[in-house]
Simulated scan of single mutants.
Amino acid sequence: MILEIVSPEAKLFSAAVTSVTLPGINGSFQILNNHAPIVSILEKGEVKITADSFAFAKEVAGKFTKINDQNYTLSINSGTIEMKDNKVIVLVD
């Protein structure tokens, strides 16, 4: 599936991923390939991204924390998420 993470300042990430775990207002939840369509509000926490490989633009690479070669996290204050047709769009603040 494709994951796009966008902030008011810039597009932070756009690539194919295996899964993404998000801090929902009712608890953390994970999205995998072929997940049902969903729209949700996010609260302060960490977005956890799992992918086979990562490539970040130089200007945003410092916002992500490397867990291992296939996992990175991004701290957010709030946001929204939409999953539809194997494309996840996350708007973060």
Rank of each mutant, 00 (worst) to 15 (best):
E59G: 13
G62C: 06
Y72K: 05
A51N: 02
V6K: 03
N34P: 07
S78E: 11
G45V: 02
K66T: 15
S75E: 10
N86R: 09
A57Y: 12
N33A: 14
M1I: 02
H35W: 08
L32G: 10
K44V: 13
I67F: 12
Q70F: 10
L32C: 09
Y72M: 03
A51W: 00
F54L: 06
E46L: 15
K63T: 06
V88R: 07
H35I: 03
M83G: 11
L12T: 01
P8D: 04
I81M: 07
Q30I: 12
V88Y: 01
V47W: 04
I25C: 12
A15Y: 04
L12Q: 00
E4D: 14
G24I: 10
G24H: 08
S28N: 13
E46Y: 14
L42T: 04
T80L: 10
N77W: 01
A61E: 14
E59Y: 04
A15I: 02
T18G: 02
K11I: 04
T73R: 04
A55N: 15
A10P: 05
F13A: 03
V20F: 01
K58N: 15
I49E: 03
N33D: 11
A57C: 06
L91E: 10
D69K: 11
N33L: 12
K44H: 13
P23S: 06
T50L: 10
D85S: 15
F56A: 09
S40M: 05
I41W: 04
T21Y: 07
P37C: 02
P37I: 00
D52H: 12
S78D: 12
A15K: 01
K87F: 10
P23M: 09
V17D: 02
D52C: 03
M83H: 14
T73C: 03
E82G: 12
I25W: 07
S28H: 12
L22K: 07
T18R: 07
S78G: 09
N33G: 11
K11R: 14
I49C: 05
V6P: 04
A15G: 00
L12K: 00
V47R: 03
F13D: 01
D52N: 14
I31K: 06
T50C: 11
N71E: 15
M1V: 09
N26T: 15
I81G: 10
A61T: 04
A57E: 13
V47N: 05
E46T: 15
T65A: 14
M1A: 10
E59C: 10
A61G: 07
S14M: 07
Y72V: 03
Q70I: 12
I49A: 08
G24N: 05
V6G: 12
A16Q: 09
F13K: 02
S19E: 05
I5K: 02
S75Q: 09
G79L: 01
I5S: 04
A15E: 10
D93H: 08
D69I: 01
Y72N: 03
V47Y: 01
E9T: 11
S14H: 08
T73K: 02
S7D: 02
V92F: 01
G45F: 03
K11W: 06
Q70H: 13
V39W: 07
V17N: 00
V92L: 02
I76D: 01
G62P: 03
L12I: 00
I89H: 13
M83V: 14
I67T: 14
I76W: 01
Y72E: 07
E43H: 08
S78N: 09
L91K: 11
I81L: 11
